[in-house]
């Protein structure tokens, strides 16, 4: 039995906001199954009492003084926008009709 089914891959793609064609799904699902077989090896390590590491080096929260510093102009910030209107990013509708 595969560790991940075609339906699960389709569901994950929806969660990740990636449309996938049937062909892509046919190709991806078995590859992901193999990869999950590989990465699943981490479960062979006895590590119940080991603390997790999210970051290689010790981290402390970094603060800076609350001072004005130069920043992008609106023109610069919008310079890569796919569409803009009235000095704002224009986006497709975000609510469903009705």
């Amino acid at each position: 039995m595969p560790s991940i089914t075609r339906e699960e891959v389709a569901h994950l793609a929806r969660l990740a906001r990636i449309e996938l064609s049937d062909d892509e799904l046919d190709h991806l699902a078995p590859q992901l199954d193999q990869i999950i077989g590989l990465v699943g090896q981490v479960s062979q390590v006895a590590a119940d009492d080991i603390p997790p590491t999210s970051h290689a080096l010790p981290l402390t929260n970094v603060m800076r003084a609350d001072e004005n510093v130069p920043c992008l102009t609106p023109e610069q910030a919008l310079s890569g926008a796919p569409a803009q209107e009235e000095q704002r990013f224009r986006v497709p509708r975000i609510l469903e009709e009705d």
Partner: peptide, 20 residues
């Protein structure tokens, strides 16, 4: 639709794996 067209196969594989 943009992410389907704009990302290649390996990027899709890894995003889906990470989401999983």
């Amino acid at each position: 639709l943009t992410r389907e067209a704009g990302f290649g196969a390996e990027v899709k594989r890894r995003i889906i794996l990470g989401t999983h």
